[in-house]
């Protein structure tokens, strides 16, 4: 089994965000970038597949600022190989379909038979990348994945749905997975492993042709309008606690 994991750097949305002048993006100049949290889980699940079923793991990412460091950390985590995909041009806020077009050829050329990536990112809130990759590759895709088990003839994929429901899907052939959570929390990678990985130079591969079809675009970003629902409680801790208890009671969350 050869698992390709797609990793993406995304703006750290724990920062204070500003909307850019164009009105359809955030001001990126001062925003820190970090590995997309769901991609982190996808990488963990791939490394677990390596440990449980001997899969080989290749981490891929679109070329860009900070990507070498990102891919080196994937090596420290247990990826066997890291590849950055170069491309000619991408719009400033590329839609998943455009990214998938660049990635799919390279992934196919690598000989991967399962692709894992995060179910969504702050920029791909609709979770389209896994689906678009599936479409490009002509493979089935599964989202909301919460763990993968190796089976004799493929994979057993667990999907988690709202309301406490889960499904187990038997994927017998190549498949693209949008991972929501790994079967165990992503492991910590020590600084000394990271330091060892600093020497690794990611391979470069040219991506596919840019996508020419129509894509979704962000037209406008806006800060949430503040509603009238907030009430400020004043007074010392006891007074605030009393009000809090009263509210819980009023909403029926507290009995007696």
């Amino acid at each position: 089994m050869h698992a390709a994991v797609v990793l993406r750097l995304v703006p750290d949305i724990a920062d204070d965000l500003e909307i850019s002048e164009s009105g359809n993006d955030i001001d990126r100049e001062w925003v820190g970038m970090k590995l997309n949290e769901f991609d982190d889980h996808a990488l963990e699940e791939a490394v677990l597949l390596k440990e449980r079923a001997g899969a080989s793991v290749t981490a891929v990412a679109l070329d860009g600022d900070g990507v070498d460091k990102l891919l080196q950390s994937a090596i420290a985590r247990g990826a066997d190989r890291v590849v950055k995909i170069t491309y000619d041009e991408l719009p400033p806020l590329p839609a998943a379909a455009a990214v998938a077009a660049i990635l799919a050829d390279a992934i196919q050329a690598l000989g991967a038979d399962v692709v894992l990536t995060g179910v969504q990112t702050p920029e791909d809130a609709g979770g389209q990348l896994a689906a678009a990759l599936g479409a490009r590759l002509g493979w089935p895709h599964l989202s909301a994945v919460a763990g993968v088990q190796p089976a004799p003839d493929g994979l057993i994929v667990r999907q988690e749905h709202s309301g406490g429901y889960a499904t187990r899907v038997h994927a017998a052939g190549p498949v693209v997975l949008g991972v929501q959570s790994a079967s165990q929390p992503p492991r910590y990678v020590s600084g000394s492993k990271l330091r060892q990985a600093i020497g690794v130079k990611p391979e470069k591969r040219a991506g596919g042709e840019a996508f020419a079809g129509p894509v979704a675009m962000v037209r406008r970003l806006a800060k949430p309008a503040s509603g009238g629902g907030a009430a400020m409680w004043k007074g010392d801790a006891d007074a605030v606690a009393d009000q809090f208890v009263a509210l819980l009671r009023e909403r029926g969350l507290l009995k007696g």
Binding site: S190, G191, S192, K193, L194, R195
Partner: peptide
Amino acid sequence: GEEGLFQT
């Protein structure tokens, strides 16, 4: 105990 991170 995070020696590598300390070094970095």
